[in-house]
Simulated assay, not measured.
Amino acid sequence: MSRRRQNTSRLLPLLRSPLLGELMAWICLHPEMNYSLPELARRFKVSRSAIGKEADRLAEAGLVRSEWRGNLRLLRAEPANPLVRPLTEVLALTYGPIAVLADLLPAVPGLAEAYLYGSWAARYAGEPGPPPQEVDVLVVGDVDESDLAGAADAAEHQLGRPVNIYRVSSMEWRWPERDPFLMWVRASPAFALVGAPR
């Protein structure tokens, strides 16, 4: 399974990099929150200096509010900027699945792992193609269907597109050769949301 962040953005080609898309989506889709640079660096598995450079550019453009609390720099979306609302809508359609599902799924009881796969993961991995029309998620674990349905509904509301969640047991995931679909998912580009390194 491919989990490596690509150098160019196929989800939103206007952006310089997928990191910028992930960072902006996370901040804009959680507008009530402040995030420290070390916290963001850990979340996206990059250096603090990489996050700091992006933060400087976003703050200069007035897209994020940057403030210091002691020696800790905090970022949050800048709601006064008229570009933030439409930009948030675009980010929800492109990089939103990472920000929304990585926030919702860890709270689902019994969930061990979760992966984005299908057309969204293919675009994220750099494969050319049309924008994804839906979001496909594979979850691993002993999860109640109603909990998954609730998470899918919440994600669909935030992302403005269908979210399809496919559940498999940990045993099925460990021995995918029994299921051609799981073999295909493992061989295809995928993005780890919960429980596995990106």
Rank of each mutant, 00 (worst) to 15 (best):
Q6I: 01
N7S: 11
T8V: 08
T8I: 05
R10A: 13
R10V: 07
L12Y: 15
P13R: 08
L14G: 15
S17M: 08
L19Y: 11
L20F: 03
L23Y: 03
I27G: 01
C28F: 15
C28N: 11
C28S: 12
L29V: 08
P31Y: 14
M33D: 14
A41M: 11
A41S: 15
R42L: 09
F44S: 04
F44Y: 08
K45S: 14
S49R: 09
G52M: 05
K53G: 00
R57A: 14
L58G: 01
A59N: 04
G62R: 09
L63V: 04
V64R: 02
W68E: 15
G70F: 09
L72V: 14
L74A: 04
R76W: 07
E78A: 15
P79W: 10
A80I: 01
A80S: 15
V84G: 02
P86K: 03
T88A: 15
L93N: 02
L93C: 02
T94D: 02
T94P: 03
G96L: 10
G96Y: 09
P97D: 12
P97N: 12
D103S: 14
L104K: 05
V108T: 04
L111K: 00
A112I: 01
E113L: 06
L116M: 08
G118P: 10
A121C: 08
A121F: 09
A122K: 14
Y124I: 03
P128M: 12
P131D: 02
E134C: 06
E134W: 05
L138C: 05
L138G: 00
D144F: 01
S146K: 08
A149H: 06
A149I: 00
A152Y: 01
E156M: 10
H157M: 10
G160K: 03
R161N: 10
N164C: 13
S169C: 06
S169D: 09
S170E: 15
W173R: 09
W173F: 15
R174F: 10
W175G: 03
E177I: 11
D179P: 06
P180V: 03
M183W: 05
W184L: 12
A187P: 00
P189T: 01
A192Y: 08
L193V: 11
A196Q: 07
P197S: 09
P197H: 06
R198H: 11
